[in-house]
Design a protein around this nucleic acid. Sequence first.
DNA 1: TATTTTCACTTGCATTTCACAAGTTAGATA
DNA 2: TATCTAACTTGTGAAATGCAAGTGAAAATA
Lengths: 146, 146
Amino acid sequence: MPKKRPSPKRRSGCPLNASVEILGDRWSLLIIRDMMLRGFRSYKEFLESYERIATNILADRLRKLEAHGIITTERNPSDGRKLIYSLTAKGIDLAPVLTEMVLWAAGHEDTANQELVRLIQKDKEQFLAAVRQRWAEQRIRSMANY
Amino acid sequence: MPKKRPSPKRRSGCPLNASVEILGDRWSLLIIRDMMLRGFRSYKEFLESYERIATNILADRLRKLEAHGIITTERNPSDGRKLIYSLTAKGIDLAPVLTEMVLWAAGHEDTANQELVRLIQKDKEQFLAAVRQRWAEQRIRSMANY
DNA sequence: TATTTTCACTTGCATTTCACAAGTTAGATA
DNA sequence: TATCTAACTTGTGAAATGCAAGTGAAAATA
């Protein structure tokens, strides 16, 4: 059941505007990419990702993503220092957005990671299904830790 | 022929990162929405759009979008004050990105404009084809002005 | 022709956000 | 007990943003 939170003080009711207000910055989607495509789940992994996000920005973005219901945070039961960040259903539903952004840049800009691009181009729906499947499996494995 | 410009000082070669560096702010995609979906073509129209962009920000974003080859600027031959902003092929290729962002927000946030959302949901490919068609027609009409 | 309007901006300034470096705290490890 | 690690927070300067007012060229109007 997708809960739709009322929008507090949005600039407009346009759905694109909502997306832009939530995701329209230089870091949020990269964090989501790291979780969705690379399986990153810890603060340290995000920090060490290639684009080098600053630690205060990372903390801020994780807070905001959680506030928006895109990720969840839980403590690792076997090591109380570690936090595990996971994508919610709302978060994994961003897969088509990321996918189209990858395809657009790959088609119009000089970019790397052509294996990923070709994989998406070959069969977009299958790629999205695989992403969702991995997410679902990781979820089950997480629950098994308790 | 899609020219791929070399990326000057990108944070990484990841295609998603390229998209985020070009489009990842609170206004660029709204300007593109106004051009793509509402047919806006002048500075004044963008300024008066519902979200109320500041004039200096608008000028800056139009400059950057043009520098990235997403829009073009031409002077209206019948009124030398007016400039006409148009989406390039690279710009109209953002339609799938906008579409997925609209669907995501519509599914998870409290948003308006449900007619548009339902139109997209009914047949996404047909919606995209219609957007492209309108763009192509507008292009031809523009050329006819000369 | 002179004056006013329109259009697409620019400029100045206060506020907010960002980037970088350093420091902090709770919990694990030796 | 001391050290280490993970996940932050804090401080500071730089850059981006938001708001109001002003500018200049071209067009419309008197």
